[in-house]
Computed example of a mutant assay.
Amino acid sequence: MPYALFCNDAQISKSYPSEADVWKLAERSGLVVDVTADDERPGPRRVLDNDYKIEPCQAAQGEDPAKNKAEADRQSRMELELNS
């Protein structure tokens, strides 16, 4: 099942093959923050900012989550090359 980024129950990203793929997208978009440790979990942990969440979803008609992932990976590599 594909996953996507949601805000206030509205899907705001394309669908991707795995939850980890959406975490990468959220991190690149500046939506991931580190929260200090609490009694249950030592050390900082990653959470999504504000009302964002990652949830399973249905891919839109004609949408290919694997193609979306490949496109996002390609864009990320291009950004790294430009920043080098």
Rank of each mutant, 00 (worst) to 15 (best):
R46E: 09
D49P: 01
A26R: 08
A72E: 15
S15E: 10
T36N: 15
M1V: 11
L48T: 00
A59I: 08
S76D: 15
E81Y: 02
R74H: 05
K67N: 15
S76W: 13
A60H: 10
R77L: 15
N50V: 09
A60W: 11
L25N: 00
F6T: 02
Q11V: 00
P65Y: 02
W23H: 11
A20R: 03
V22H: 09
D73G: 03
A20S: 07
C7E: 14
A72V: 04
L82D: 13
L80D: 02
A72R: 09
S13R: 05
A4P: 00
E81I: 06
K53M: 04
L80K: 09
S13E: 10
E55C: 03
L82V: 03
P44E: 14
E71L: 13
Q75D: 15
D38A: 10
A4G: 08
K24V: 12
R77C: 09
R46I: 08
S18H: 11
P17Y: 04
D38C: 02
E63N: 06
K67E: 13
D9S: 06
S18E: 14
P65A: 12
P65W: 09
D64W: 03
D51V: 01
G43P: 02
V35N: 14
C57M: 06
D64R: 01
L25K: 04
R77M: 15
L82M: 12
K14H: 14
V33Q: 06
A72L: 10
S15C: 05
A20L: 04
D34K: 07
A26Y: 06
K14Y: 07
E63D: 06
Q11L: 05
L48F: 01
S15Q: 07
E55Y: 06
L80Q: 07
S84H: 02
N50C: 12
E19M: 11
P65Q: 11
P65I: 00
R28L: 13
N8E: 11
L48W: 04
K24M: 14
A10D: 12
P42A: 07
L5Q: 05
S84K: 06
L48Q: 06
V22S: 01
G30E: 15
P17R: 01
A70F: 10
D49V: 03
G30N: 01
C7R: 13
R28T: 04
E55R: 00
P65M: 12
A59P: 13
L80F: 08
Y3V: 04
P65S: 04
E55L: 04
V47G: 09
L25G: 02
G62P: 11
V47H: 12
D64E: 10
P44R: 10
A70P: 06
S29Q: 15
N8F: 04
Q58I: 09
E71M: 00
A26F: 05
D73A: 00
A66M: 03
G43Y: 09
Q11P: 01
R41W: 14
I12D: 15
Y3W: 08
E79G: 12
E71I: 00
Q11T: 00
I12G: 09
Q61R: 13
K53S: 08
E71S: 06
D51L: 08
I54M: 14
A10W: 11
R45L: 14
K67D: 12
K67R: 07
V32P: 09
A4H: 02
G43N: 09
K69F: 07
K53I: 11
Q61M: 11
Y52E: 14
V22R: 01
L80S: 13
P2M: 07
